[in-house]
Amino acid sequence: MRDGFDVTPRSGEGAGLWFLKILTGFLVIVVLIIHLIVNHLIVEGGLLTYTDVVRYYQNPIIPIMEIAFLILVVTHALMGLRSVLLDLHPSNKVLRLINYGLVVLGLGSIAYGIWLVLVIVGRG
């Protein structure tokens, strides 16, 4: 880094990923507001018991919304985490590990979340 011109191409956070980070952040708000409205204004009495939750999930809009929310939040959170890590300027080797780890973690938790939603729907 002595010369100050480190432009070796690598999968750092360029325009595309930065934009995705801002966009997912914005969409999280939108879905969060919908979620709050549905949860508090449409469902009477709240969702406090297991039976409530299962009944709530019978309307097909709900699982679709929850899965969209899950994907957006996980994507945004892991990309945010990645940009914090990138501020530490990891070497290319470490960055590859980070990328790999975050992709596995992200896909893993999305798969787990979808499985969970389907289980709940199936209990109806």
Binding site: F5, D6, V7, R10, G12, E13, G14, A15, L17, W18, S83, L86, D87
Partner: peptide, 14 residues
């Protein structure tokens, strides 16, 4: 562009 449209350029600002 190589310098500023990059990881260490405009997209790094928080």
């Amino acid at each position: 562009l190589d310098l500023v449209d990059s990881e260490n350029g405009a997209w790094r600002c928080h």
